[in-house]
Write a protein that binds this DNA or RNA. Structure first.
Lengths: 147, 147
DNA sequence: CAGCATCCCGATGGATACTG
DNA sequence: CAGTATCCATCGGGATGCTG
């Protein structure tokens, strides 16, 4: 999927980002929160297997439960429900029930959810741009591990 | 940690990012790769508990094994080794052994690793800016779940 | 100092079956 | 259609102990 890579930009770190990084680095391993750390649970979400796919699937337009399931692919109803609940709880996705018969439910991105796609998307673009480099690096690494 | 939030920017989605998103959404659930998907394993890395902390810790300057362990906090040697190996394999971190006695090893960000911190940092800034909103949303959600 | 090997537990998440 | 409930396999990752 997603063959958009058009070279390796290797973007530089902007000032606000650097400020953020420095403040994290300065924090120097205080184990205090780390579970409470707001950054952590956002990052965890992003890393969770299905979160990203669902956000991306909802970006063009709101969708219903089974539409989502078909679009995302082989996600189980269990995981789809669970992930949607989390996103709803975080205020990234809205859930609207239509009392038709049988009932239908529509999920949509909130403003917050849409705004999250900007930095997440940037990360995706980075990943797409550099995955060839990464793949090559892995092959080289694995090759000399055999020795 | 990291109390830099100065309001909620709610950034908009830029054109290249939108192109990326669309190409993902258009992909419409082909389960073909998904394990091979380059985007997936990059995202997985970011989500892994220690990857981010290590990258951030290495950004200001290269560091040695035990320096890293102290700075990151309560990471075990096992996990530190494992995470560093992955990052080295991906070409994000370089590893240089100095044949002193006892031996010392220095880890440093590569250009690739540093470049990754730009989009990752942007995501961190977003998380930091919006975690109050998210927290509030969660409380509201949990409150009416009780009913 | 900088690891590797082993044991082990809890969480993640898939498969399946049932319901309003 | 849009879930919920249950069971179960896998795996991340912590603790501990041993090396060059």
């Amino acid at each position: 999927m997603t063959r958009l890579h058009s070279g390796n930009p290797l973007p530089e770190i902007s000032d606000p980002v650097r400020a953020m990084l420095d403040s994290m680095a300065a924090w120097t391993g205080a184990p205090e929160d780390e579970a409470q750390c707001p950054v952590r649970d956002v990052l965890d979400r992003v890393g969770q297997k299905w979160t990203l796919l669902i956000l991306v699937a909802l970006e063009p337009s709101p969708k219903r439960f089974s539409q989502l399931q078909r679009q995302v692919g082989d996600i189980s109803k269990r995981m789809l429900t669970q992930t949607l609940r989390q996103l709803e709880r975080d205020g990234m996705v809205s859930r609207q029930v239509f009392p038709t018969k049988p009932p239908s439910v529509e999920y949509a991105l909130t403003d917050l959810g849409r705004s999250a796609l900007a930095p997440i998307g940037a990360l995706l673009v980075w990943a797409d741009s550099n995955h060839e480099t990464i793949r090559a690096s892995r092959e080289a690494f694995d090759a000399e591990e055999v020795s």
